[in-house]
Design a protein around this nucleic acid. Sequence first.
RNA 1: GGGGCCGUAGCUCAAUUGGUUAGAGUACCGGACUGUCGAUCCGGUGGUUGCGAGUUCGAAUCUCGUCGGCCUCGCCA
Length: 603
Amino acid sequence: MAIAYNERTHRCGSLRKENVGDTVTLAGWVNNYRDHGGMVFIDLRDHEGLTQLKFNPDTDPAAHEIARTLRNEDVIAIRGTVATRGENVNPKMLTGEIEVEASGADLLAKSKPVPFEISDHVEANEELRLRYRYLDLRRPQIQNIFRVRHQLTKTIRDFFDDEGFLEIETPVLTKSTPEGARDYLVPSRVQQGSFFALPQSPQIFKQLFMIAGFDRYAQIVRCFRDEDLRGNRQPEFTQVDMEMAFVKRDDVMNTIDRCVVRIFKEILDVDIETPIRHMSYAEAMERFGVDRPDTRFGLELQDITDVVRETGFGVFKGAIESGGAVKCIVAPGGAELTRKVTDGLTEELKGIGAGGMPVTKVVDGADGPEFATGVAKFMQEFCKGICEKTGAKVGDAIFFMPGSYKDVCKYLHFVRTRLAEILGVIPEGRWDLVWVVDFPLVDWNEDEKRWDSTHHPFTAPFEEDIPLMKTDPGKVRSDAYDLVLNGEEMGGGSIRIHRQEVQRAVFDLLNISEEDAQLKFKHLLEALAFGAPPHGGIAFGLDRWVMKMTGQESIREVIAFPNTQRATCPLTDAPGSVDEKQLLELGIDIRPEVRAKLEKSAE
RNA sequence: GGGGCCGUAGCUCAAUUGGUUAGAGUACCGGACUGUCGAUCCGGUGGUUGCGAGUUCGAAUCUCGUCGGCCUCGCCA
C-alpha cells in the first residue's frame, strides 16, 4: 500500500520519547544505511533532522525487502510506530532516544551515487560543491546558514517596519553611471545600440524617494558590480539599503545602532553596547593604518618619525626627506619569533609591493635595553628614544616601515593583521563594532591628476569645511560614516547634498563639467531643484553580515548559488554564448579578435 | 594585469623527494551477518597523475606553456 507522503505526521527532527507508541508517517532522504542481513537501520534525513528507522524482517517482510535496496540519498516515505531504543540510546542524535519501526515503505526516487558524501565528516573541494550545489545545500550545516540568513532579513525588515520605513523596489534595468565600479550592461532590443546597466546600488533612486517625500525608505536589494572577485566580494550581492529625510548623521547612526542591537540579540543572543563608538578616519589611519580598524587586539602603529629624524640610515632618511614617515609595530614577546617567520612576513610584504621591512629585537644590554639582530646596528643610537616612545620592552620585536604615509599605512596594516594571526592574539567571540567618521571628501588620484570622491559625488561636505574646497580640498571632511565589525567594513553611508549650489561646487572640485553632470546625473540634479529635504542614509552588505554571524570565511558560503573567482557558475555554466539570432536582434556583434580567440579555444 | 598556493581512482588523501606493476580510506558492485548508529567482516570494479610539449635510460615528481580552482595586490565612487 502506498504511503501518503503528502500527509507527513512529523518531521525527522521532532520525535522524542513522548511520542513512543504513535503511528507516524515520515519522508526524506536516506542519510545512511546499516544492513545486518536481518535488521536494517536507516537514518532518514529531512530539513529538520535525522530519525533512525528500523526494518525488521519479522515485522514487515515487504518493507524490509525495500529497505535492503536503499542507498544514500534515495528518497523514501515510511509509515511506522515510534519505539523506545531501550539500551541502545544514541546520545549523539537529538532523536537518539527513539526509532521508528517501519511497517510500510515507499521508494519515491532512487539516487545515483553522489559525487561527494553529504556529511559532516567529508569536505569536498569547492568547485565540485558549487557544480553540485543542490547536493551541497543538503548538508544541515549549510542549511543552517540559510536559516540564519532568513532570520536576519526578517529581523531587519521587522525593524525598519517598526521604525516607519517603507520598502519600495527600484529598477534593475537602469542607466549606466560612468563613476565608480564597472557596470554590468544589458543590451536593449527595442533601442538598438543602447544599453541598460544593472545597478551598483540604488543610490540615486533612494534619494529621489526622499525628494518624493516618502520620509523613510529601506530595501533589501540585489546589486551588481563587474569588478574582480574576492573571498568577500561577489559580482552580485545583496544590500540592505536605507535612506531618511530631515536627519543629520547621528540620527542615521543611532537608528542603525538600534538595528544592530536587535540583530545581535535576535540572531546570536548577544548584547551590543550602544552607542557604538565613533572613531575619526584620521585616528583609524594613524593607529591602524586602515579605515576599517580591527580593534579586537593591540599591535597598533606607532609614529617614530620625530625620534629617528636625524638618522643616517638610508631608507629611513629617504622617507623622511621626501615628506613621508617612519612608523613601527611593537610585537610583545616578538623576540621569540624565528627568522623564518619574520623573513616570511617580509616576503609576503614584497608580494604586495613593499620594498622590505627592517626588523629588530629588544634585548637586555649592559646599559638597559638594546637592539639585537636585523637593523640593530643602524638603529642602536635611537633605542632608548624608540622604546620610550613606543613602550617596547626587552623580549619584544619591532617592525619598522619607512615610506610615504599611504604606503606605511598599507604595509603596516598588513603586518599588523598577519602578526595578530601569527601571535594568536585575536580573541574569540568578540564583536567589536566601530563607526568610522570624518572621512576626507576627496582623495587625490595621482595617476589621473585629479580629485576623486572618497565615498560618492553626492556626499555632503562638512558645512564649516566648504570654504576649504577652493583652497585645500584634501582637508575637506565629509558627512560620511562606515560601520566596521572586527576589521571588516559592513556598511557605509552619508548625509547627501540637498542643495544645488553645493552639488555644483563638488562637481567643480571633481572636475565634472556642467555638461557632463547633466549627461550623467540629470535626473538627480533636476530633482534637487524641486525642493529636496536634507537627507542621508546607509547601505549594508547583507552577505557579509550573514558571513560574520555564521562564522564563515567566505561570502560564497552564504550565497545559494555563488560565482567562482572568475565570475562563472560551475552549476549553470553561466555566462554562456548566445545564438547569432539573439545578437542580430540586439544589433550587436562579437568583436573579430574575440571571435578568433573563442574559435581557437574551441579547437 | 601582477604575486602566491594547488590540481593523483566518483570523493578525501599517500607515493621514502627522479626509480620496478601509482597505493589507502571511503563510495560503488557481489557475498556474510537480527541492535547498528561514520556498523562490521570477506571479495571485486575503478587511474590519459588537469591538458600539451620538453629534459632524462626512466617523470605524478624537474622545466616551459596552457586550462581550472583558491588567496592576494591593483580594481571595487
